[in-house]
Write a protein that binds this DNA or RNA. Structure first.
Length: 145
DNA sequence: GCCAACGTTGGC
DNA sequence: GCCAACGTTGGC
């Protein structure tokens, strides 16, 4: 899951413990959110910052539910086309697990041949929520310690 | 701040 | 249903 650290960082999650992950407004990312289950582990990625990369691990505490911001007229994420009966957008709740001693930077990830087909390292990729395979998870977390 | 890549919108 | 225009993402 990607987040801009200026908006919400791994340190913010560490401090708060839990956070509702809302505001996803891309259908592909939404579908990946909906596929998440309670207890699933998440790689937390910092994007649009000085050193983009995976900075820690979180865990799904609550599986997908209707993203409340889509009904909030005051929210940037308000969607007038969504309805309470058939909510268009979903959110999940995540919990802090740990922060890596040092980030696994995008640059590092690009140098791992096994990760070449991962959307994350591909140029022009804009997906903010994406699945990670077991081998990819292993590769990435191995680089963290 | 620039710009490539991509998703969405809307005219036809 | 095509595709140009536009807005957004995100690395650099």
């Amino acid at each position: 899951m990607k987040s801009e650290p200026d908006v919400f960082s791994i340190d913010d999650l560490a401090r708060k413990g839990r956070e509702v992950w809302d505001g996803v407004r891309n259908y592909q990312a939404r579908n990946f959110l909906r596929a998440m289950q309670m207890g699933d582990l998440v790689l937390f990625y910092h994007s649009s910052c000085a050193v983009p990369g995976v900075v820690g691990i979180a865990q799904i505490r609550q599986a997908a539910f209707a993203d409340p911001t889509q009904f909030d007229r005051a929210s940037d994420y308000f969607d007038a086309a969504s309805s309470a009966l058939e909510p268009r957008w979903s959110a999940v709740e995540v919990e802090f697990v740990r922060k890596f001693a040092a980030p696994v930077t995008l640059e590092m990830l690009k140098n791992v041949a096994d990760l070449a087909d991962m959307a994350l390292v591909r140029r022009g990729n804009r997906l903010s929520v994406m699945p990670v395979t077991e081998p990819q998870w292993q590769r990435i977390t191995d680089l963290a310690d």
